[in-house]
Amino acid sequence: MEELTSNWNRLSLSDREGPGCCLEDDLSFHELFLAAKFLTRRAVNVDAIAKTFTPLWRSRNGFQVRNLGNHMVLFAFDNMEEVEKVIQSEPWSFDKHLMILEKYDKNNSMEELQFKRTTFWVQVHGLPIKFMNVRAATKICEVLGTVLPSTNPHEYEGGNFVRIRVSLDVTIPLCRGRLVSIGRDKEVWVSFKYERLPNICYWCGCFDHDDKDCEKWLNSFYKSRQSVSSQPVPQSQKEQEKSCPTSPVQARSSTAGADWTDSMSPERITELVQNGKPQSVTNHSQQFASCTSPSVT
């Protein structure tokens, strides 16, 4: 290497071969990155992600997808306008699970990304006619997060409701509505409906798990089993057992189920209910009504 360097130094360069050409940053290929995190426990398939979002985003020069692990991917674009278009069209979901997007500066580390916020159009229902305007709906929706203004006034119109665009913190449960005071002597319940709402937990309203994996539901189910097993045996049942004696094996079999379920851990209960859930979960899910609309492209 030292010999090559010395030989190069002895060469004489012409005017065209010598210095004088300087490459500035504006001549480089600028990749613009969007980091994404998928709130799901399933493995992320990069090929399926690319096939899903290519027709939705309609990027002029296409985009690249890189798997970062831990349910995170990196989308690389070459056009800032397309990046802004994707962000303005939130929320996005993949396989019915929420995908959180953040602009990524390649000079920073991935650990600095928080993946805490995404944007939803929220429908405000139940407003009295005289308060069905953007100002009143904006004040009500301040409890949800940061209200984002829109340059198109027609986007707020929804007929019998008002639409407000809000940046939500996805680490806290969704808000179902709000009790609003009308004057001093009247209160009305104003409900929120979230457009293009992906899968959530209908027990607690969180995005990061399904209802069958909710600790709140598991604890409730586990406690209900304990309360049933702790109830005293009716006298009529005791008399029936005395009149129809059973063998020790039969007696053990008749109570083994209760003892077994009483000793189950929440993890074991989760395994048992993977293929189903109590009817109470389905009924409880009605608390979080959602309104779906075609994907924004």
Rank of each mutant, 00 (worst) to 15 (best):
C204H: 04
F207A: 08
G205I: 06
S220Q: 13
S191G: 09
Y194G: 00
C201G: 05
P198Q: 08
D213I: 01
V190C: 06
N219W: 09
D211W: 12
L218P: 01
N199G: 04
D185V: 06
K212N: 14
Y222D: 12
K212G: 11
W217F: 13
R196M: 00
Y194Q: 02
C214K: 02
N219Q: 14
R196I: 00
G205E: 06
P198H: 05
L218Y: 03
E187W: 11
V190I: 15
Y222L: 14
W203C: 14
K212F: 09
D208N: 11
L197T: 02
Y202L: 02
F207K: 00
C201E: 07
F192T: 05
D185A: 11
K193P: 00
E195V: 00
Y222Q: 14
D210H: 05
G205V: 04
N199L: 06
V190A: 07
Y194V: 00
L197M: 15
N199W: 01
C201V: 06
F221W: 14
D185L: 07
V188H: 08
F207Y: 14
W217E: 10
G205S: 09
W203M: 14
R196C: 00
Y194S: 01
C204S: 09
I200Q: 07
F192P: 01
V188C: 12
F207S: 01
N199R: 11
E187C: 10
E215Q: 11
F192M: 07
R196H: 01
D213C: 06
C201K: 04
E215C: 09
D210K: 03
D211L: 08
R196K: 09
R196E: 00
F207I: 01
K216C: 07
L218S: 11
K212D: 11
V190W: 03
V190D: 03
F192S: 05
L218R: 09
K216D: 08
V188G: 12
P198N: 10
K216I: 10
L197Q: 04
P198M: 09
D185N: 11
W203Q: 12
H209F: 06
Y222G: 10
D213P: 01
F221P: 01
D213W: 03
E195M: 02
D213K: 06
K216N: 07
H209V: 06
C206P: 03
D208Q: 04
L218G: 05
K186N: 14
W203G: 07
I200D: 07
C206T: 07
D185M: 07
S220P: 06
S220I: 07
W217T: 10
C214I: 04
F207G: 01
K193F: 00
D211F: 13
N199Q: 12
N199K: 12
C214D: 05
C214R: 02
N219E: 12
C204V: 09
K193C: 01
F221K: 12
C201W: 03
D210C: 08
C204R: 02
F221V: 14
C206S: 12
I200T: 10
D211S: 15
D211N: 06
W217N: 07
